[in-house]
Amino acid sequence: MAHAKKRTASRPAARLAAVQALYQREMEKTALPILLDEFHQYRLGATIEDATYIKAEVAFFDDIVKGVGERCQEIDTVIAKHLSSGWSLERLDRPMRQILRAGSYELLARPDVPTATIISEYIDVADAFYDRQEKSFVNGLLDAVAKELRPASGKA
Rank of each mutant, 00 (worst) to 15 (best):
T52E: 08
L142P: 00
L35T: 02
Q24C: 04
E38S: 13
D93K: 05
C72N: 13
Q41M: 15
E57C: 08
G67E: 08
M96N: 06
Q41S: 15
F39T: 07
T115M: 12
E74N: 06
L83Q: 03
D143F: 07
Q41K: 15
P114D: 12
R97Q: 12
Y42D: 15
S120W: 03
Y23R: 12
M96R: 01
Y42R: 15
L35W: 04
L100A: 04
E26K: 12
V65F: 00
V113Y: 05
D124C: 05
Q41G: 10
K81P: 01
L22I: 03
I34V: 15
K55D: 13
E28R: 13
V145N: 00
V113F: 01
I75W: 02
I34F: 08
A102C: 10
A46G: 06
G69W: 09
A46P: 08
R110S: 14
A102M: 07
E74I: 09
D62N: 14
L22D: 03
A144E: 02
E28A: 09
P114E: 14
P151E: 06
R43L: 04
G45L: 08
S120A: 15
K29N: 14
S153W: 08
P111W: 05
Y105Q: 05
L141T: 06
D127V: 08
F60H: 14
D76H: 03
A56P: 06
T117Y: 15
L22R: 00
E57K: 12
D76Y: 01
L141P: 04
D112Y: 02
V138E: 07
E26C: 09
L142M: 06
D37C: 12
A128Q: 12
I123W: 01
E148K: 03
R97S: 00
R43N: 10
G140S: 10
S104M: 02
L35E: 05
I118Y: 04
G86S: 11
G86W: 05
A56K: 02
A109K: 09
N139P: 02
A116F: 12
K135T: 04
A152P: 06
I48H: 11
L22T: 01
T117N: 10
T77K: 11
A152W: 12
S120R: 11
Y105F: 15
I99E: 01
I99Q: 02
A59P: 10
R43V: 14
R101D: 01
F137Y: 11
A116M: 13
D62R: 10
D143L: 13
Y42N: 15
E74K: 11
I123D: 00
D131G: 14
P95D: 05
E148A: 05
A126E: 00
T115N: 12
W87T: 06
H40V: 08
D63F: 09
S104C: 12
T30H: 03
A144R: 04
F60G: 06
F137G: 00
D62F: 10
T52Y: 00
N139G: 04
A80I: 07
I34Q: 14
E148N: 02
M27V: 06
F129P: 02
K155G: 11
A59D: 13
D127A: 14
L44A: 03
H82L: 03
M96P: 03
L141I: 09
S84T: 10
L149R: 03
K66P: 03
T117C: 11
T47K: 15
M96H: 08
A152K: 15
A59F: 09
R43M: 14
